[in-house]
């Protein structure tokens, strides 16, 4: 969806017409679900967070500044929703659920069965380590590695200066490395 089309849809939504919200929801639900799943670790809570975020986004649309991009604003709302859910007793990062959902990309270049098993095991260990490092470290790693956002986008979503992103990423990666060492994983 082009930025002009997106802006026009938002303008209509700001007027209160929810029919024009559908293309926006459909455009952002997959990346949104990836982010929520990465932060919450299970599909049920992730979908719950996503639904609440879309509703909250529409309800606060009147305050949205049309000169800003919609994506970071929505992901910011979603991230706050995930954090609220993690803080409440309703949800917590559930590794068990996440483990079952690990799968290899179809285009994985390493096709040997032993290598695939090794890689799958490495990913399981990584998730175990991700669970240990805490929400703040995990969220920035999810935004960077699973979502592939640039530093500017991450800064907008996390509401931090762009210069802080590299520092936060460094601490998150170092925490992940230490968590892996605690598990007994030699990396790389």
């Amino acid at each position: 969806m082009g930025p002009e089309v997106e802006r026009e849809l938002i303008r209509k939504c700001k007027a209160g017409d929810s029919r024009f919200y559908e293309p926006l929801v459909r455009a952002y639900e997959q990346p949104g679900l990836r982010l929520a799943l990465g932060m919450l670790g299970n599909l049920e809570d992730a979908k719950d967070a996503l639904q609440h975020s879309f509703i909250k986004t529409f309800e606060t649309m009147a305050r949205f500044d049309l000169s800003r991009p919609f994506g970071p604003w929505f992901f910011q709302i979603l991230r706050n929703q995930c954090r609220d859910q993690l803080r409440s007793r309703k949800a917590r990062f559930r590794l068990e659920a996440l483990d079952e959902r690990l799968e290899l990309r179809p285009a994985d270049p390493e096709t040997g069965p032993v290598r695939i098993r090794e890689r799958a095991k490495a990913r399981e260990i990584l998730w175990e380590a991700l669970e240990k490092i805490g929400d703040e470290h995990r969220e920035i790693l999810i935004l960077k590695e699973l979502q592939g956002f640039r530093y500017g986008e991450i800064a907008a979503i996390l509401e931090i200066p762009e210069g802080t992103v590299a520092s936060r990423l460094y601490h998150a990666r170092r925490a992940l490395k230490e968590a892996l060492e605690e598990i007994g994983a030699v990396y790389p």
Binding site: R119, E145, P188
Partner: peptide
């Protein structure tokens, strides 16, 4: 070390239901 971690994280894909 960081590059290897990054590669493994990036090749991960979550099942989205």
């Amino acid at each position: 070390v960081y590059r290897a971690m990054k590669d493994d994280l990036r090749t991960m894909q979550l099942h989205e239901g």
